[in-house]
Each structure stands twice: as structure tokens, then as C-alpha cells.
Design a binder for these strands. Structure first.
Lengths: 117, 117
DNA sequence: GTAATATATGAACATATATTCATAAAGGAG
DNA sequence: CTCCTTTATGAATATATGTTCATATATTAC
């Protein structure tokens, strides 16, 4: 009573082995997943949109996104760790801006896809 | 004792209003987030990789990803709902394949980004 | 020194998500 | 019809994640 016999072989064992052999390393896939996960939250997308328009401090972002300063700060930390934003200090104020040119291409691809649905 | 005075205005109120006015609709942002969320999981990324190489049935995918058939089936449902995969029936067997040409461009952008870290 | 401001952070909580298990549904073979 | 196979699905569970609250840190002004 095997669960996975699968006689459906439209593909040969050799082909399957070959395909399996060429899959990116588990670590790479994990990193890719982490990368996409960052974009998979509307609060972070809003932050990224606003920063794509203008360098902004945390309080301004909180105003624009209409969310607590603490929430924004937590999300900015995540974005920082993933190198999507950077900041410069000026007194107690931190001015955030985008740190990655790929963000715009990524937005574009996503919009293209969504427009076709 | 306001929490958000923010005198940091490197940006004028008018500019902020303007930027806020042009942000995509909340619904659009929500959809973008959902879209990215789909890619933000290593199991789904593996499935997408394998399907990019060959049309496959559920049991074969379970073998390749080395995960239970049920788990694969649940993930395939999600991928179906987001129109990233499609399938054709042949008897009791379902052959899955990719349903979106953007997937490859998306993979590429992500890899580019990761290689720069 | 104190007071006020901007930001960061830890704990707590609620919600979302991925996986497993058990089982249902549907088709093919006998 | 019954048995077997392939896939889908609902419930349960464990884990991850986003937000809030309270508070810490750091800088500036007085």
C-alpha cells in the first residue's frame, strides 16, 4: 500500500534525476524566498513606494502610511536587513531612502502580471 | 505631548500631499502583496522551478520536492488561485505546468539582486 | 543637570501560514 | 460492483508574522 507509486511517468527517471540535479542550492532558494517575502506585505510596499518618491524620515513615513511610528520602525528594520533601504543620520532624525535599483523593475513585473488578470 | 511632530521636513507639506495622492489604490497594493507572498516560500519556489523544467504530476512533484502529496496539493491550489500554474487532466492524473511567462523574469531579477549581496 | 524629540526595541498578542493526518472524491482495472 | 490509484480537502497543530504598547536610547535645547 505505497502512497506514491505514480505511474504517470510522462517523464523518465533519468530526466527527473537531471532536473533534480540542477535545482539551485537549498540555501539559494531559501534566500530567494526571504527576498520575496519582504515584498509580500502591503505596509512595506507602501513604505517602498513613498521612498521611491522621496527621502523621508520615520515620522513622515508614519504619517503617510497612517500607522504607528513603532510599526514603521519595525518594518524599516526588516527592509534594512534585506538591504532594500538605507538611511543617513542628521541629529536624532534618520532619513531613509531606497538602497536597491532592482525595486523598480520588480514593481514593474508585478504590475504587468496583475494587469493581465 | 504629540507623538509625531516631526520638524524634519526636508519635504514640504505640498510635496507630501502630492506623493500621497499618487500612491496606487489600496486594493492594487494589496494585490501586489498577495502576488509576492506566493513567491515568498521555498516549497512553492521549488515547485515553480521543477515546473519550469517539465510538466509534472502531483506525485512526481512530491517525490522531487521530497514532501507529502498533501502538502504539494495544498501549495498547488494556492499557485492555481494566483494563476501561476495550470493543469490538464488525464484520467486521475493531473499534469501541472507554468501558466505565466513572468515567472522567469521574476526569478532573474531576484537572482540578480541576491548575487549582489 | 532636566525636558523634549526622534527613533529603536522587547514583550505580548492576535492573526496568518505551512505542514501533517485522516479522509473524501473521482477515475480506471478487475 | 469492489479495489486501487491519484488528487483534493478539512481539521488540527505548530510556527511565523505584523501590530501595539511601553520603554529604552540618543540627540538637542535649555
Amino acid at each position: 500500500m505505497k502512497t506514491l507509486t505514480c505511474l504517470c511517468k510522462s517523464i523518465s527517471e533519468e530526466e527527473m534525476d537531471d532536473i533534480k540535479k540542477h535545482i539551485p542550492k537549498d540555501n539559494t532558494i531559501q534566500n530567494m524566498a526571504e527576498f520575496f517575502k519582504v515584498f509580500g506585505d502591503s505596509t512595506r510596499l507602501k513604505i517602498l513606494y513613498y521612498l521611491s518618491r522621496h527621502e523621508l524620515c520615520v515620522a513622515d513615513l508614519a504619517l503617510l502610511v497612517n500607522m504607528q511610528q513603532s510599526a514603521i520602525s519595525h518594518q524599516l528594520k526588516l527592509l534594512r536587513l534585506n538591504r532594500l533601504v538605507k538611511y543617513r543620520k542628521e541629529g536624532t532624525t534618520n532619513y531613509y531612502s531606497l538602497d536597491d535599483e532592482h525595486i523598480n523593475s520588480i514593481f514593474k513585473v508585478a504590475l504587468e502580471h496583475l494587469q493581465e488578470l
